[in-house]
Nucleic acid binder design. Structure first.
Lengths: 193, 193
DNA sequence: TTACTTGTTCACATCATTGTGAACAATGTA
DNA sequence: TACATTGTTCACAATGATGTGAACAAGTAA
């Protein structure tokens, strides 16, 4: 049966397609770098997503031109995050990509972004509490307490928005997201006027 | 007039406050790292935001314990992004932080995220076009074209959502955002059921 | 003017990230 | 069993990001 990166790759058409696939892998890699992953995660995932058949780690390493050791670690993380799944439970099982990645994105937002915001909020609160307690009168000469309160409020708002995003159903399917988008779009339009 | 990091910093209370301020700077720095900036940008901005008076570059460098050369470059970028403003047009003018940073966030999303998504979409389209053109019958044995189409649709959906976010009025004020949040919240709740 | 302070630039040092290759473990196969 | 293949681990190399200091430019004050 035909396999990705097979002996037919000397064929001109296959070379063209392979280049296209690499472009997809690279662009998805670049994109995902800004979402808490490394570029290589996106490239491996994209390759699995475009492949008609499950791929073994060696094939992935060969196709992408990276070492087996790198693929090993990356696959482990992708499986851990629920973006990739082994076909069976054997040691040398090939892998497939999962396309319902909303749970993963939500999880990333939950752990990473939430914690960052919460740290900001707590540090701001610590500041204003201490400023009011030990600051005395002159504190307003040095620090802008009112602005600190504004920042706290903004942080809380950001946390509320984040909560909303995280709480979004499951649906990473294009259909549902489009539907959801329609609702929000109508709403925003109403809010704008 | 009292100034940040002044000679009074030997005072116990001042030391406490200074530590709190540093915590705020660091946490905002950590947060902003995931939004296309470096940590130092957030720390400089936070210091300016909390300071009651405009600060000169030397003061910022001293307070944060970094070199003047670093502060110089960072300030230039922050001014360029519209997050910080010089008080007057003189060379040695001190700087203040601007808190309406939604335009900046929108601009970042517009340039960075949009381009990344657009590159992904184009590479996927290039792939399916070439696959259909030169692929012949066996292409389905090797590549999952249907999945490629799904990914294209998802990318377009993400672009639509992004457009919506970018198009969001101006309002970085906590009040307006909270209001907007309320609308969206009600909507999502309705969609969930 | 001279001396001093502040801001800017750039070549370099420092540090963190990313990827490699060799040794090993685990599995399949003759 | 012996042999080949695949996956895993870890110390290290390569690369890139981040910050520094020295030299310079531009202003300020004596």
């Amino acid at each position: 049966m035909a396999k990705l990166g097979s002996e037919h790759s000397s064929d001109a058409a296959a070379v063209t397609i392979n280049r296209r696939v690499m472009e997809v892998c690279d662009s998805i890699g670049d994109f995902i770098e800004y979402w808490g992953f490394k570029g290589i995660h996106g490239r491996v995932w994209a390759l699995l997503a475009l492949s008609a058949e499950p791929l073994a780690q060696v094939q992935i390493a060969q196709y992408l031109g990276v070492s087996r050791s790198l693929v090993s670690g990356v696959i482990a993380e992708l499986v851990d995050r629920g973006l990739v799944r082994a076909v069976d439970s054997s040691r040398n099982s090939p892998y497939v990509a999962l396309t319902d990645f909303w749970p993963t994105v939500a999880s990333v937002l939950r752990s990473r972004e939430w914690m960052l915001l919460e740290t900001v909020r707590q540090s701001l609160e610590g500041f204003v509490v201490d400023a009011e307690r030990v600051g005395g009168d002159s504190i307003g000469q040095i620090y802008n307490l009112r602005r600190a309160y504004t920042l706290i409020k903004m942080t809380e708002t950001a946390q509320n928005i984040l909560r909303l995003l995280i709480g979004y159903p499951t649906a990473a399917t294009a259909d549902r997201m489009t539907q959801w988008l329609g609702h929000v779009g109508a709403l925003v339009k109403r809010f704008k006027t």
